[in-house]
Nucleic acid binder design. Sequence first.
DNA 1: ATTCTGACCGCAA
DNA 2: GTTGCGGCCAGAA
Length: 122
Amino acid sequence: MNGRRASCDAAAALRRARILAAVRAIPRGHVAGYGVIARRAGYPRHARLVARILAEHEEPELPWHRVLRADGRIAFPGGSRGFREQCRRLRAEGVRVEAGRVRMPDPGEDLDAAVWGWDGAD
DNA sequence: ATTCTGACCGCAA
DNA sequence: GTTGCGGCCAGAA
């Protein structure tokens, strides 16, 4: 077998595993950005990799809907199937979504559910 | 090796 | 609020 190729695949599998773990770790009712997930998984600047992995995942329990763009908006094109599904799932767990976008935690306002920029400190 | 494509990001107009 | 653009990085062609 080709060792270089094998170690490459292994590295890819590891990235994938760590990223999926980071996504699973987002508490219910909370959200995090692609970049935040990448950073928490140990791969800063790999936001696009997170997106790719979410697009290909096959794990039914994965809370992929808790992952948003850096500005708090849903990454799917508005009106697309994924867009509506993500909206639905988020609202189902108490996250406020308005115009395809999750409300940011304004200072002074006590949001009980949707916490933007969640980074594990909670 | 080179080129193209993303469920992206940050910053400047 | 919006758009545009360069930067980013893995994977496929």
